[in-house]
Design a protein around this nucleic acid. Structure first.
Length: 476
RNA sequence: GGCGCGGUAGCCAAGUGGUAAGGCCGGGCUCUGCAAAAGCCCCAUGCGUCGGUUCGAUUCCGACCCGCGCCUCCA
């Protein structure tokens, strides 16, 4: 069953298939700007794209996933100047941090992760082509702008009326749009190349129009062309990128190459809210992975919480949602253990992709997979998984073996890893000693003493959990 | 103003023209010296409001109300 996905351009839900001439499914995703740690809102989008890619691979499609690193723009340059570091050094640090977070969250590395700085020649080349074809013009200061009026179908993705943009002199907050004081011929036009200015410091690259740096939008056009060609299968990003970024990409790419049909499918994921509010720096609710890990949540729990809502609906991220994810994951683990035991497998044998590749059965998880195929319905998929978990079917070894395979494939597709070691709390010597004494008292059936020791532990903020063969000490 | 999304139980969240998946929380039971955990059971006559179509609508159509996003750097 092919994966069906809603397409922003056509507003239709269409199957994702290999093109007749296609050997791989080309997928381009707008990546992070590496000027600080990515926040969980960024990661919601990246994780959703990761789930889509995994679903395609589970479906058997060969995918070529390209996700760029934006390492030259206003924010990275400003950040490097403030940090007193060369741009490359500054962005390398944040890129490495981003990679560590991605790995922790179980994101498959893209097949290609192009850097914008490393593609400046390609960007210059594309701008030159646009100027040659009359779609762009150089301003007096050496900046180059895209001439929107030369692109009649500009606005087709977001269905905005480009002619109305011309007259918009104020933004939604009632402030004047001052971005184009002088150079642009029209307010719709956007920068392809920005002439060097003193605040750019040492960050300047040569071009036929003088030293400067690329505009933000052109990098994705140049990098997708370089790594996927003039047309490819799917382009993804957060909803906020729909306009103007993606609209501009379409205009630049189609006008520069002369080939229509830039991306076959547009995949936009809704934004993340935090505790009912829009995420923003000023509200102080921009969480990073580190902050959540600091509070005791695992990256897998964060991932679960971030995919628990449908991708086209804004998701309200809350700590209770994170707790919810933890409980649900625990339930999943216990269920998986029961399946494994019934099938005669160990936890090690549960590890995909081995299970995924050696057998192509879904067991009772076919409905879960079908939900995923219907516009990447992760909540629906999860519901189906738990429906199986709560089923009263008799668990024969044969059924259990199929289920193990099915569950492993579903969880791999969702990118959820079970049975990860949770770091045990550091037990102070005094607490360990109390625990040992209580266990001894309990073994000796001196329950009065055992209860007293439990109280002492509680007073110190620790809980003692008894098992048949021993005990665990946990922070309360 | 333009473009777009959504309103389903205490919270989160699927879904369907034939009477509401699932998760969390909560309640009950079982088990365990206690505690915790776990297992089992229960938990919306109701799907923003009002009309319409229909044998039948939460699901289709219309109007309205409310919340939100983008239109400006933003995943």
């Amino acid at each position: 069953m092919p994966v069906f996905l809603h397409d922003t351009m056509s507003r239709e839900t269409r199957p994702l298939l290999l093109r007749p001439d296609g050997k791989v499914f080309g997928m381009y995703c707008c990546g992070p700007t590496v000027y600080g740690p990515a926040h969980i809102g960024n990661f919601r989008t990246f994780i959703l794209q990761d789930v889509l890619r995994r679903a395609l691979e589970t479906d058997g499609l060969p995918v070529r996933h390209v996700r760029n690193i934006t390492d030259v723009d206003d924010k990275t340059i400003l950040g490097s100047v403030k940090a007193g570091q060369p741009l490359a050094e500054f962005t390398r640090g944040w890129t490495e941090k981003y990679h560590r977070d991605c790995d922790a969250l179980g994101l498959l590395r893209p097949h290609v992760e192009p850097s914008a700085v490393a593609h400046i020649p390609q960007q210059v080349e594309m701008i030159r082509s646009l100027v040659d074809r009359g779609h762009a013009y150089a301003a007096a200061d050496g900046s180059v702008y895209f001439k929107v009026c030369t692109c009649p179908d500009y606005g087709k993705l977001s269905r905005i009326d480009a002619t109305k943009l011309r007259s918009q002199s104020t933004n939604s907050a009632g402030e004047a749009n001052v971005a184009d004081e002088y150079d642009r011929e029209s307010i719709r036009d956007f920068a392809l190349w920005k002439a060097w200015s003193p605040e750019d410091g040492a960050n300047r690259w040569p071009s036929p129009w003088g030293d400067g740096r690329p505009g933000w939008h052109i990098e994705c056009s140049a990098m997708s062309l370089a790594h996927l060609g003039a047309t490819f299968d799917l382009h993804g990003g957060g909803v906020d990128l729909c306009f103007p970024h993606h609209e501009n990409e379409i205009a630049q790419s189609e006008c520069a190459t002369g080939v229509k049909g830039f991306a076959g499918h547009w995949f936009h994921s809704a934004h993340l809210m935090v505790e009912g509010d829009k995420m923003s720096k000023s509200k102080g609710n921009l969480y990073t992975l580190d902050e959540l890990v600091e509070k005791g949540f695992t990256p897998t729990e964060v991932r679960y919480a971030l995919i628990a809502g449908h991708y086209r609906t804004p998701l309200n991220f809350t700590f209770s949602g994170l707790e919810n994810a933890r409980s649900a994951l625990g339930k999943l683990e216990r269920f998986a253990d029961r399946l494994l035991q019934a099938a005669g497998f160990t936890r090690k044998e549960f590890a995909p992709p081995e299970v995924r590749e050696t057998a192509a059965t879904w067991g009772r998880f076919a409905p879960a997979w079908e939900a995923l195929c219907q516009d990447l319905n992760v909540p629906g998929c999860l519901g189906q998984v738990f429906a199986v978990a709560g089923s009263k079917d008799e668990l024969t070894p044969e059924l259990a073996r199929q289920d193990v395979c099915g569950l492993a494939r579903i969880l791999w597709t969702l990118g959820l890893t079970l049975f990860q070691e949770r770091k045990a709390d550091e037990v102070p010597a005094a607490v360990a000693e109390l625990g040992a004494r209580r266990w001894a008292a309990k073994q000796a059936k001196d329950f009065a003493a055992a209860d007293r020791l439990r109280q002492e532990l509680t007073a110190l903020g620790w809980t003692m959990v008894d098992r048949k063969d021993g005990y665990d000490l946990k922070k309360a």
